[in-house]
Amino acid sequence: MAKPIQSIERAAAVLRLLAGGQGRLGVVEVAGSLGLAKGTVHGILRTLHHVGFVEQDGGTGKYQLGGALLHLGTSYLDVNELRSRAINWADALASRSGEAVRIGSLLGGRVLVVHHVFRPDDSLQTGEIGLLLPPHACAIGKVLLAYDTGAAAAAKETAEAYTRRTLVAPADLTRALTEIRERGWASEAEEMSIGVAGIAAPIRDHGGLVVGSIGITGSMDRLCDRGRVPKPVLVSQVQDAARAVSRELGAQR
């Protein structure tokens, strides 16, 4: 076994202490209980605060366990929060690419359309926020499957064909998801509707966890070249937008 990482052990000790049912504790109390330097404890508490595992009382400055700990395992980033943090970057992507933009998040095995920006040509379009899409058949969904093994396994069992190009064979899906992880973006070419293509990239939080996807969708001839390959300039615009939203959420990359 590799050597344990000391700061993680200490963080675990801080959490156990706070969970000990003594109510809120200050930095000095935590440091005293654990026999650690005040500065060390302060650093650990600030980091735990940053990820939502502890909360600080505004008045006394003391700490207690945070709400995020109670929701470990469920989607902890509120989808409406994701929309409000991403909205400017989604607009910028639509404006640069000239295509409609969608942001997705997994919900019960489907992709929830969290946000939708119209294609900026002022043509008649319908809002898609709240729609649930099959994840294996669209770019914003495939990205999410690529970084979520549980959801990917479930999708492989239930994948339905929408066109003759929809990926339904488990081996095909596995190969596609591996490729998405390797290159960091996903595409769809007439896999859900004839004539429609999509490109998407992952949105990561401050720890690197994929919490959503952002992508463009539009006609095959605008998004892909003759070989049905997504145009590189659009791919990089999508990746830039995904990185910008991730930065907004505190991600390092």
Binding site: F118, D122, G127
Partner: peptide
């Protein structure tokens, strides 16, 4: 010229 920059992003 400025008016041409205005585009609809969403509608309810």
């Amino acid at each position: 010229g400025l008016r041409r920059n205005w585009h609809r992003a969403g509608q309810w």
